[in-house]
Amino acid sequence: MDPSSTGIQEPFDLIRLSLSERVFVKLRGDRELTGILHAYDGHMNLILSDAEETIMIVDPVDGNFEGQGTVKVAKRKMEMLFVRGDGVILVSPPSRT
């Protein structure tokens, strides 16, 4: 395998190394989350605390797709959050530099 940076042998290692760290999560339905990762499992069910959800609401009435003309952004905060794994697209840990 690839011993390049910090000895990640399987994708879940990346998540394990992010426990107790603030992570970025991209979800289905144009939603994004940041929060502190407390727990996860093989389905990528997640427990996040101090979570902020960002919801992108694209207005299709405007035929102007050039610069994604009308995108509304809604945000909400949650103290503690369970995320069902099947909605997860991507998880990114804080940069390890």
């Binding site: 099947d86 697209i89 991507l90 998880v91 530099t97």
Partner: peptide, 28 residues
């Protein structure tokens, strides 16, 4: 499931995000 390094997110050929590391869930 995939782990990527130095990841760029492209939508319609435009870079929309960069991540140092990224975990992508397999079902996508």
């Amino acid at each position: 499931n995939i782990a990527l390094e130095q990841t760029e997110e492209h939508v319609n050929g435009i870079v929309t995000n960069r991540y140092g590391d990224a975990f992508i869930r397999g079902n996508n």
